[in-house]
Amino acid sequence: MKGPALGAVVVALILGGCATTTAATGPAPGPATAFNPTDVAWLQLVVPMTANALAAARLAPERAGSAAVRSAATAVVAPSERLLERLEAVRDRAGLPATDVHSGHRMPGMITPADLAALRTDGAGGFDRRLIALLRAHAAQLVVLARGEQASGADPETRALAADVSAEGARETELLPN
Rank of each mutant, 00 (worst) to 15 (best):
L13A: 09
L83T: 04
M49H: 10
A73F: 15
G169N: 03
T38N: 11
L116T: 08
W42E: 12
G17P: 06
V165K: 01
A133M: 09
P37H: 13
P97M: 04
V47I: 12
E157D: 15
Q150T: 02
C18D: 11
G3F: 00
A170Q: 11
R58Y: 12
E62G: 02
R70W: 15
A114D: 09
Q150H: 13
T112S: 01
T74D: 15
G104W: 08
L84D: 04
E81T: 12
R106G: 02
A67I: 03
A64E: 04
S80N: 11
P97C: 09
S71Y: 13
R58F: 15
A78Y: 15
T74V: 15
L84G: 03
A114I: 05
A98Q: 07
P29D: 04
A23T: 09
V165F: 01
E85Y: 11
L135V: 10
A118V: 02
V40Q: 10
R82Q: 15
V143M: 13
V101W: 03
A160W: 06
R136I: 04
A5H: 08
A98G: 11
P97W: 07
L6K: 13
L116D: 05
S166M: 11
S166P: 11
E157H: 14
V90C: 05
G65D: 03
P37M: 06
A146C: 08
A12G: 10
R106V: 00
L54A: 06
V9I: 07
Q141G: 06
V47Y: 06
P108A: 05
P31T: 08
G123H: 09
W42R: 14
A160K: 00
R106P: 00
L59N: 01
A19D: 07
P108N: 01
L161D: 11
T74Y: 08
E174G: 12
D39N: 05
T173C: 12
G17K: 03
F35H: 03
L54Q: 07
A72C: 08
A32K: 14
D155I: 11
A68F: 00
S71L: 12
L134D: 01
V143A: 15
A68E: 02
D39L: 02
R106A: 04
G126V: 07
S80G: 14
G95K: 00
T33Y: 11
L6W: 07
P156N: 07
Q141N: 15
E172W: 14
R58V: 14
A170F: 14
V9H: 09
A89H: 05
A32H: 15
A140L: 15
S71N: 11
I111V: 07
L175A: 12
A5P: 12
L84K: 02
G109I: 04
L6N: 10
P108K: 00
A53D: 04
V10N: 05
G16S: 06
V77L: 10
H138F: 14
D115P: 06
N178C: 09
V69P: 00
P4G: 10
A151D: 08
T38R: 10
G17H: 06
L175K: 09
